[in-house]
C-alpha cells in the first residue's frame, strides 16, 4: 500500500480510478455539512451533546479530506511520524490548558 502514491509511478488509469473516489468524497462532504447544520437545530438533552455531535461530524469530514484529498491514506511513514508528534503536542496544549479549570481555586 505504501507505494501506491509515490511520486513517480502514477500510471494514468490509476488516477482516473481515483477521480471517482474524489467525487464520492466531495458528495460526502456536502452531505456532512447539511447533516451538521440540521443536527445543530435538534434540541438534544444538553448543549454538550450538540457540541459532541457537531465535532464528531466535523472530525469525520476532516478525516475524509486528509485521507483522500491529501492522500494521507497511503503516505510514507516519515509524514505519519511528523503528524503523530504534532497531534500529541496539540492534544497536550488543549487538555493541559483546559485542565486549569479543573480546580476550584481558579477564578
Amino acid at each position: 500500500m505504501n507505494n501506491e502514491h509515490s511520486a513517480d509511478d502514477h500510471p494514468h488509469h490509476d488516477i482516473s480510478k481515483h477521480v471517482r473516489r474524489y467525487m464520492g468524497v466531495f458528495l460526502a462532504l456536502l452531505l456532512g455539512t447539511v447533516v451538521t447544520v440540521a443536527a445543530s437545530y435538534i434540541p438534544f438533552k444538553s448543549n454538550e451533546v450538540n457540541i459532541a455531535v457537531a465535532l464528531a461530524i466535523a472530525t469525520v469530514k476532516a478525516t475524509l479530506v486528509a485521507a483522500i484529498f491529501m492522500h494521507l491514506s497511503a503516505e510514507r511513514w516519515t509524514i505519519y511520524r511528523f503528524l503523530i508528534i504534532t497531534v500529541v503536542f496539540a492534544i497536550g496544549l488543549f487538555s493541559l490548558t483546559a485542565l486549569a479549570f479543573s480546580d476550584h481555586i481558579h477564578r
Binding site: 462532504l29 455539512t33 451538521t36 447544520v37 445543530s40 448543549n47 450538540n50 457540541i51 457537531a54 465535532l55 461530524i57 466535523a58 469530514k61 476532516a62 479530506v65 486528509a66 484529498f69 491529501m70
Partner: peptide, 18 residues
C-alpha cells in the same frame, strides 16, 4: 489548500452552530 478547507470544516460548526 485542503488544509485551509480542513480548518474551515472545524471553524464552521464551532463558530456558527454551537
Amino acid at each position: 489548500w485542503h488544509f485551509v478547507d480542513l480548518v474551515w470544516i472545524f471553524l464552521f460548526p464551532v463558530l456558527y452552530l454551537l
